[in-house]
Amino acid sequence: MSIIAEVSRWAIPFLLLIIPLAAFIRKVPVYESFVTGAEEGFKIAIKILPFLIGMLVSIRIFVDSGALEILAGLLEPIFIFFGVDTELTSIIPLAIMRPLSGAGALGVATQLIDQYGPDSFVGRLASTLQGSTDTTFFVLTVYFGSVGIKRYRYALKLGLLADITGLIASLWIVHYVFY
């Protein structure tokens, strides 16, 4: 664990050192090449702007209005039907939020951890869920948007399938390891 943490800590300084150095040895005009590559950063960031705004507005209205809670309430019987404990249904808003918004999901997870305690079942489950799935819907719209893709084909279905799998796997493993 501490080794992995160290690798994460050193990764960026290492890359910042080794890449320019290696390029220099290979006789690449390092500074000019860096600048040429960096130029693209601005263009890409501007390109994703409308997609970010479109998604954030819709998601934010959905969450802030209280619609998310209502949807979570509607989904509760389904979760219970599949054998999820009643107390664990507090995880449903997080499960819905996770694919939509990274910051939003972190907010919900933090609130759950504070409310139930980090070492409770809900706290551990929220932590595992937060780390094991991604903001699939958000990533898809922004990444596809950045290159002008309009038809996603089976991409969304696939991403959401992975998210649901992550949710089920999180439920199972937290139960298995800690209880």
Binding site: I19, P20, A22, A23, S33, G37, E39, E40, G41
Partner: peptide
């Protein structure tokens, strides 16, 4: 994103040209 984006894309360009 513009800052980090430019930084990494600049580095990536170097990494590309260095093989």
């Amino acid at each position: 994103l513009i800052g980090v984006m430019s930084l990494w894309l600049g580095l990536m360009r170097l990494a590309e040209e260095a093989g």
